[in-house]
């Protein structure tokens, strides 16, 4: 069996509209727009863009999916991977330093913390998209990704996925007993690959 691979990326372009959406704000929100450039400027040096991933053959039988020694029962995942013979499992994170920055402002300037958090969400989603577009595409045509916690794909799967990706060693991702990942701006997902 092959070990997980890890890769760093250059920052993908920031999608301001998405950041505002995650901050529960609109494009016309003067307060958010006024704060955002400074927030992005402050966060930028603290962000890293890293992904750990692993490729595996997939077998789908009914709602049960077998890959990487796992057997997962999920209609959603089975449907997503049904057309594929192979899939990638990956974890992406923008790092711990952003969490420290959010913690700093959470108590002192919640408006800034809200925007930093929204930015982090947008950044890690953009990183996932970048990974799928560039790296997953080297294996074939990537299908839309699917993460634990969505639909009937259980969040508790994180306990098995993170060790398979050696995510603590590669990315510093740890999991709490209540299944929260740290750094908080981290994502795990499956991507089906069409040959």
């Amino acid at each position: 069996m092959t070990p997980a691979l890890a890769k760093s990326y250059s920052p993908p372009p920031t999608r301001v509209r998405e950041v505002l959406r995650y901050a529960r704000s609109g494009e016309g929100d003067a307060a958010a727009l006024a704060l955002l450039p400074a927030v992005i400027g402050e966060a930028e040096p603290h962000l890293s863009y890293r992904v750990a991933y692993r490729e595996s053959p997939v077998r789908v039988a009914g709602d049960t999916v077998e890959l990487l020694g796992l057997s997962v029962t999920s209609h959603r995942l089975a449907t997503a991977l049904a057309p594929c013979r192979r899939a990638l499992l990956f974890a992406a994170t923008v790092g711990t330093a952003l969490d420290r920055l959010i913690a700093r402002y959470a108590r002192l300037a919640p408006s800034r913390a809200l925007l930093l958090s929204a930015l982090g969400t947008e950044r890690v989603e953009a990183l996932c998209d970048l990974f799928c577009r560039e790296t997953a595409a080297e294996y074939g045509t990537p299908l839309p990704r699917l993460s634990p916690g969505y639909g009937d794909l259980p969040l508790s799967l994180q306990r098995e996925l993170l060790p398979l990706l050696d995510a603590e060693r590669h990315l510093g991702i740890t999991l709490s007993p209540s299944l929260l990942m740290s750094p908080t701006k981290s994502v795990t997902a499956f991507v089906g690959i069409l040959d």
């Binding site: 901050a23 529960r24 704000s25 609109g26 929100d29 003067a30 307060a31 958010a32 704060l35 300037a109 919640p110 408006s111 809200l114 925007l115």
Partner: peptide, 12 residues
């Protein structure tokens, strides 16, 4: 008519 960030900066 106002978004969350506006409410927060006012409260700050």
């Amino acid at each position: 008519r106002a978004y969350l960030p506006t409410l927060l900066v006012s409260a700050e």
